[in-house]
Design a protein around this nucleic acid. Sequence first.
DNA 1: TAGGAAAACGCAAAAGTGTTGCGTTAATTA
DNA 2: TAATTAACGCAACACTTTTGCGTTTTCCTA
Lengths: 146, 146
Amino acid sequence: MKKHKEILSRFGINKTQFRIDLLSLFFDCKSALTIHEIFERFNKKINKVTIYRALKSFEQKGLIHQVPDKNNLKKYSLCNLDTCSPDLHNHQHGHFICYSCDQTFCLDDSTVKILKTSSGHIVKNYNLILEGYCTDCNSSQTISQN
Amino acid sequence: MKKHKEILSRFGINKTQFRIDLLSLFFDCKSALTIHEIFERFNKKINKVTIYRALKSFEQKGLIHQVPDKNNLKKYSLCNLDTCSPDLHNHQHGHFICYSCDQTFCLDDSTVKILKTSSGHIVKNYNLILEGYCTDCNSSQTISQN
DNA sequence: TAGGAAAACGCAAAAGTGTTGCGTTAATTA
DNA sequence: TAATTAACGCAACACTTTTGCGTTTTCCTA
């Protein structure tokens, strides 16, 4: 896709086929990706070292960022390309993932605003994942559960 | 310290000198610890396998829990011993990771309480990571920066 | 558009992190 | 205090990530 090539140019990354495809993958994928998942998505045809180096490059240039998750896996997720750059990453991520339907919902900023003021530290970014049952799944579940 | 021995007994862990000292270390330490940090604190005199096994045991018995780390290392922090047990870990708290010193701090419950009610979904679990500058690093930074 | 510079690539090997097996030592329990 | 169980140290293994190096591809500019 032309858009992806333009982005790679804009961020100073050579437009190899793999890196174009990798960027596409990140655009297609709402949730964060592990190295292993990427390897699988490319049918194990790309050398893992190449993946590691591409991820490192993407991260350094401000295209993606690491998402530490609770299982201690290294995961990467697409940056907000309007607000991120090599110098400054700015990821105001709040997501709700439904246990039942696996959908990811974006949470609006106001949901999370409060928490940024109450710790003694200077908060530059946050990454928040809520898990549970979305409104739709919950209403259907309460019927079948009891 | 007597308190630490009692805790180990209560959680069904043998009171070896190392495990007593390890528990003391967790009590003394505000932020989360890596295996490497523990190894250093014991002046490299304890076999790393022993540390790994002690941490695993502590975690399984409900004394400590894993916390996220920017560099993808395993970090551990003391549980709230009143609410955690082998059966039930109850860590409803976020973590703060400092850009500057890489330390991970646990945030108390009140920080996050608000967000759980304000979305329309049923929240069963959450994973929150704040990033920025911890109080220590921030104060030293503002002096040297300008 | 040709040709040199820089970036990206694959392979092999190394470094780093965490686990397992096993024989020995220390702690618990009765 | 003797038997049982947990913890320990060492060696080896498994898995993840990085590094070195020679080759290939992309980029840039004349």
